[in-house]
């Protein structure tokens, strides 16, 4: 598959970003795919839901959904942290939803509806990130468990948010051209990208995020769905649970 290049003013920049996004997408999809396959393949030999737990698989699925959507356990654990995390994640969610318009033509109604909230969501996200970063510095317990990668991840996200907001507030970017670039990429075609620093910074940082995703703690995204303490239901007396390797051990007769 060859990328067809449409010459623009900054042909090199366009090509670099096209390749960067092609690579980032492959790494993200393949990396996450590998991890998800690994989690799915690895058996959970014992029933270990943190009880009290739902008694049915549907109940357990609902429990996981609550963890994903409202961070139930985190709410039990620490209200301030829950607020910071919620600010960031909900902000990010709306911002991401809003960005779908760059990849869609025509744009879905729901995506159109969230457009007006973009700025607030972006600000919420930045506030959440800032507070999370502050916490890592000022709370001794959190400082103790914080490593360089934890700080870098926050800085990366802050950088993405800041460059994104910069385009919204200060330097308006030709978003029609950005959209054309991405729609072009999706059709394996390199189109012109507006060569504005905030945009290029924004796009470069997002690509970095996509590349580090499968190698970093961002694996909590697939991880939360696979956590046996949350996704298992509580029915060990009623239903015998046996992992394939344990069954083999049993069949081995020892």
């Amino acid at each position: 598959m060859g990328l067809r290049s449409i010459p623009g003013e900054h042909g090199n920049v366009n090509t670099v970003f096209a390749i960067l996004y092609a690579v980032a997408t492959v790494v993200l999809v393949a990396g996450l795919g590998f991890k998800i396959a690994q989690y799915a393949r690895t058996p959970a030999p014992l029933k270990i839901p943190t009880t009290p737990a739902p008694l049915t698989p549907a109940g357990a699925a609902f429990r996981v959904a609550r963890e994903v959507v409202v961070f139930e356990s985190l709410f039990k654990a620490n209200k301030a942290l829950w607020i910071f995390a919620a600010l960031f994640h909900f902000g990010l969610f709306v911002v991401l939803a809003r960005h779908v318009r760059y990849f869609q033509e025509p744009v879905n109604v729901v995506i159109q509806l969230v457009q007006p909230f973009g700025l607030y969501a972006g600000l919420a996200m930045m506030a959440g990130l800032g507070l999370l970063l502050l916490r890592r510095i000022v709370v001794p317990r959190i400082a103790y468990i914080t490593g360089p990668s934890d700080i870098l991840m926050l800085l990366l996200l802050l950088g993405i948010g800041a460059s994104g907001l910069a385009m919204k507030g200060a330097v308006h970017t030709d978003i029609v051209a950005v959209k054309a670039f991405f729609l072009g990429l999706m059709a394996f075609e390199i189109r012109a990208l507006p060569a504005e620093p905030p945009l290029l910074v924004h796009l470069a940082l997002v690509a970095v995020l996509m590349i580090v995703f499968p190698f970093s703690k961002l694996l909590h995204v697939p991880g939360v769905f696979f956590s046996p303490t949350r996704n298992q239901c509580d029915n060990p007396r009623e239903k015998r649970h046996l992992a394939p390797w344990a069954a083999k051990l049993e069949a081995g007769g020892n």
């Binding site: 991890k35 989690y39 690895t42 058996p43 030999p45 995390a85 914080t146 934890d150």
Partner: peptide, 24 residues
Amino acid sequence: LLSKYRSLQVFMDSCVKCGACTDK
């Protein structure tokens, strides 16, 4: 163990160092 216990594999990767557990 990582290949036999999903718990271990997922727990090793998923921690975000949020610290929610630190005082528990």
